[in-house]
Write a protein that binds this DNA or RNA. Structure first.
Lengths: 109, 109
DNA sequence: TTTCAATACCTTGCAACACAAAGTACCAAA
DNA sequence: TTTGGTACTTTGTGTTGCAAGGTATTGAAA
């Protein structure tokens, strides 16, 4: 069944979304809709209702800031920018991710 | 701060715990307390309040079964056993995990 | 001028889950 | 019979992912 498969993947994505967001934003600024597309392209599908609160949380933690920018068409865009604190967090997440990959590799022999 | 670091790791562990449990049980039967020790040794620390409900969920999904066994000391132990369905799920999780590792590797360049 | 479609941001209500903490039960030795 | 070790279970709380619905801006078509 497809849905079982989807649940497995969806479950695993939990906990690494913040890592993915910071990773993308560490390379370039982006607004929510463009992040959605990048994540989709990276097979880390997320929906609006997940992403917006997550960005707000990261901003409140001081990991991100943002600025408004006119759009060529439609309403203005909220471009998120990673902060120094965010880069620090990203470095920690890199280490944590690496360790987890190794732990699981060990578990799977 | 230590706690920030812990939060990052704790957050990332979410979603792969079920994978770890099935992985351990695919090699040998185990009871909760011994699973706790194995996970701790594998740097995937979990606490009782997390593990017990998780095992019950996986049992209710038909991924695990269990049998009681006398303990040399103390109350009887509930040995969990992976089922065929559980092995199927584990195979899916292997694939999902592999894909996610690759996705994140791509995101991180 | 009004309507429409596209774009973009945000909120609400719900369910799942990890965890801390407290509770229950069994057993053997002191 | 009390104590300590082992083991399983439950309760309450906070966080989070998600579906669904809502608000607002813009430009072009009707």
């Amino acid at each position: 069944m497809e849905s079982t498969n989807d649940n497995v993947r969806s479950q695993m994505r939990k906990g690494v979304l913040e890592y993915c967001i910071l990773s993308i934003l560490s390379r370039k600024e982006a607004y929510a809709s463009s992040l959605l597309e990048e994540l989709k392209a990276a097979n880390m599908l997320v929906v609006e209702g997940t992403l917006y609160p997550l960005l707000i949380r990261q901003k409140n933690q001081g990991l991100l800031s943002y600025r408004w920018e006119e759009s060529p068409q439609g309403p203005p865009r909220k471009y998120y920018v990673i902060t120094e604190k965010g880069r620090g967090q990203l470095a920690e997440m890199d280490a944590a991710w690496q360790e987890m990959v190794e732990s699981i590799q060990a578990l799977r022999h």
